[in-house]
Design a protein around this nucleic acid. Structure first.
Length: 430
RNA sequence: GGGGAGAUACUCAAGCGGCCAACGAGGACGGACUGUAACUCCGUUGACUAUGUCUUCGCAGGUUCGAAUCCUGCUCUCCCCA
């Protein structure tokens, strides 16, 4: 049995654990669970850390349990600034649960016959028939309000600086989550709950219940919350969350998110988000430091994580797309792309439509940039940009005397316009 | 209620009768450099049928050959005294 705690330590994934957790894990196979919020049908990379906790846990020979918080998701965890939750109907809940399981199965083995095959549970299943009266009698009785009030998640909300206050529902959250732990302890033999360091308070409420009601011992392991060296929030790009679902965040953008990590962050990420061995990671870091401009670390993280989440084809397309946007690709590279990949790459780029007649007559650059498309705000702006040598058609710099003709079409209907290095416009011919 | 100062482009801020599409700084964008980074350097930053024309300096009038600039009224902002 591999030492899970050791593994977490060198990866920088251990924030805190209860005393004797390590011994408990070394004794025999154990089961640990992590909760996921099913308010959406996709996880995002913010969920990746707890996922990796479970994945490493399984690789160390233990059994991971993924808990979908159908019940708790309705309440809203007061740790952090959750806004009011919408109630999910059961159909949506089940749909989300299946989608989440599909994503988790890239990291966890649900199907093997081994003892430590992963399990997915939904707390809605045991909470939905639990009446309020039963709950306050059987569970609430064992935990004092004083104990609950001492938690940071509660203190922060009822202190005098807090303007918001907190509803009874939110206050109850820790009890419900705590009960999950007790339930899994009794029914799934789960003795450990893992989560982000903000979950410590909620987890200990669970171990408290296990001690008082179950007469046993529960353990807690938390991991640090991931930060970025520039202070911005991990897992967000301009467009919002970076999702694991390719429909929400294209594999190309997903790959780019990792590639754009700073050197400092990359050293942390490669330990946390890949399964690479310590020796490999150390070698990579040394190599990276010798030639930081090669960005070996970022590329490797992007590769490992994209392969894991989206698979080989998607990863290769992401590389191809990256080379087209940032590498020295040519018009012929562009034309070799099939239409779907082309559209994926330029997803979100401003588009405009011109007629086939425009192209047949030869579309001049002023028309293509401003007069007919409004990509730039005036004809003068377009002239200026041309004079600055800033405009490319299909990745090749053009002057103001250039006209777009049939030969420039990609997949027979697109022309890629570009101002400077990063600003793209897509001209569609109909 | 009385007195004073002000309103200029994305922001700050010069200009106080012709040389003003309006100094300068920041931002933004582009070019060179670079690691799809940072820094640095250079350029662009009202519109257009463009060595020219048109529309802009709180709003509306007026004086003048000529107004961002002077005058009158209005709107708004800030400050001081009551």
């Amino acid at each position: 049995m591999k030492n899970f705690i050791e593994e977490l330590k060198w990866r920088g994934m251990l924030h805190d654990s209860m005393p004797t957790t390590e011994e408990h894990l070394l004794e025999s196979m154990r089961s640990a669970y992590v909760g996921f919020d099913p308010t959406s049908d996709s996880l995002h990379i913010g969920n990746l850390v707890p996922i990796m906790l479970l994945a490493h846990f399984q690789r160390c020979g233990h059994q991971p349990i993924a808990l979908v918080g159908g019940a708790t998701g309705m309440i809203g965890d007061p740790s952090g600034k959750s806004s009011e939750r919408n109630l999910l109907d059961e159909k949506t809940l089940r749909h989300n649960q299946e989608a989440i399981k599909a994503q988790l199965s890239h990291f966890l083995d649900f199907t093997s016959n081994a003892d430590n095959a992963a399990v997915l549970v939904n707390n809605y299943d045991w909470m939905k028939d639990f009446s309020f009266l039963e709950f306050i009698r059987d569970i609430g009785k064992h935990i004092s309000v004083n104990y609950m009030m001492a938690k940071d998640s509660v203190k922060n909300r009822i202190g005098s600086e807090s303007k918001e206050g907190m509803s009874f529902t939110e206050f109850t959250y820790q009890l419900v989550q705590g009960y999950d732990f007790l339930h899994l302890y009794q029914n799934n033999n789960a003795s450990i709950q893992m989560g982000g360091s903000d979950q410590w308070g909620n987890i200990t409420t669970g171990t408290e219940l296990i001690r008082r009601i179950g007469g046993g011992k529960g353990y807690a392991i938390t991991c640090p919350l991931i930060t970025k060296s520039d202070g911005s929030k991990f897992g967000k790009s301009e467009g919002g969350n970076v999702w694991l679902d390719a429909k929400r965040t294209s594999p190309y953008k997903f790959y780019q998110y990792w590639l754009n990590a700073s050197d400092e962050d990359a050293e942390k990420y490669i330990k946390i988000f890949t399964f690479l061995e310590k020796a490999t990671v150390d070698a990579l870091i040394t190599e990276h430091k010798e030639a930081p401009h090669m960005r070996l670390l970022q590329k490797r993280i992007g590769e490992e994580v994209t392969l894991l989440v989206h698979g080989k084809d998607a990863y290769e397309n992401a590389i191809k797309a990256s080379n087209i946007l940032f590498g020295k690709s040519t018009a012929s590279d562009l034309k070799s792309l099939d239409e779907q990949t082309f559209l994926d790459v330029f997803d979100g780029v401003p588009q405009a439509t011109v007629t086939t007649t425009d192209i047949e007559e030869g579309l001049d650059m002023i028309g293509a940039l401003a007069a007919k498309t409004n990509f730039l705000k005036s004809n003068g702006d377009a002239r200026r940009a041309l004079k600055e040598n800033a405009i490319s058609v299909n990745k090749e710099k053009v002057k103001d005397d250039f006209t777009i003709s049939k030969e420039d079409l990609i997949a027979d209907k697109y022309v890629l316009l570009q101002r400077g290095k990063k600003t793209y416009y897509l001209l569609k011919v109909e």
